[in-house]
């Protein structure tokens, strides 16, 4: 099967500081990839680089065989990549419905699998809060809204940064269920989170980052079978 996203020897810079040192990664259509690692290892920078939000990158980023390296974020979004940033990023002045509708568009195949009704059925809490302003939502509701907004663009791949950080366990459970729904829909994801247990349930592959590079890339079972790797790079015993 051809790759949806191919990243080869990616190097990213913030000013004179190099953050990513030759990252190579490939994602198949519909594949769920978990990106893990300690803080400051380059996970967020990798997602931001893929989204065109890091001004200086070198290497290769191909989406469906076409280069998107150096493209503007809006062009990358239109090419089928959706981004759920850390800290959510709902538009506080807009209502829940407006936040969702403004992002609505058909996917690259011309289909609108994700409609407003469908997103609201996946997130009934958002349906209850439909008229509330973005700034009137709890952290969990904001995360649901941001994921729902990403789905409204009918993407081929969603990049989710810190999927459940700071959320109450019950709300986090809803997010994990949603990721399972997304998986069932055949939408590829790269998810950053610290909850290895839940990540290993929803992910096809686990990628461990360390010091701006990739230390491990394999199945959840392979990773869990290497306790020394978990301890060294994630501090887990």
């Amino acid at each position: 099967m051809s790759m949806l996203l191919t990243v080869d020897r990616l190097e990213s810079f913030y000013g004179p500081s190099q953050i990513l040192h030759g990252v190579s990664l490939a994602v198949r259509p519909g594949e769920q990839v978990a990106l893990i690692g300690r803080n400051g290892m380059g996970k967020t920078t990798l997602l931001r680089s893929l989204m065109g939000l890091v001004p200086r990158v070198q290497g290769t980023i191909d989406l469906n065989g076409s280069s998107i390296r150096g493209s503007k974020p809006e062009a990358i979004s239109l090419a089928g990549v959706a981004f759920v940033p850390e800290g959510r990023g709902v538009f506080g002045s807009l209502s829940v419905i407006e936040n969702l509708v403004m992002a609505s568009r058909a996917g690259r195949n011309g289909k609108r699998s994700w409609t407003l009704d469908r997103v609201l059925s996946v997130f009934p809490r958002l349906a209850q809060r439909r008229g509330n302003g973005g700034h009137q939502l709890s952290g969990g509701e904001q995360q649901m809204l941001t994921i729902g907004r990403a789905l409204m663009t009918n993407p081929e791949i969603i990049l989710i940064d810190e999927a459940t950080e700071g959320l109450a366990p019950l709300v986090a459970d809803e997010i994990w269920k949603t990721l399972a729904v997304i998986r069932g829909e055949g939408i590829a994801t790269i998810v950053v989170d610290k909850d290895i247990k839940n990540l290993s349930k929803v992910a096809d592959r686990m990628v461990v980052m360390s010091k701006g590079g990739i230390e491990f890339d394999g199945t959840p079972a392979d990773l869990l079978a290497q306790p020394e790797l978990l301890e060294r790079h994630l501090g887990l015993h």
């Binding site: 989204m51 503007k72 974020p73 239109l78 959706a82 940033p85 538009f91 807009l94 992002a103 663009t153």
Partner: peptide
């Protein structure tokens, strides 16, 4: 509200 997030939404 947030230009970068708007751009990232296409």
């Amino acid at each position: 509200d947030n230009e970068r997030r708007a751009l990232a939404l296409g």
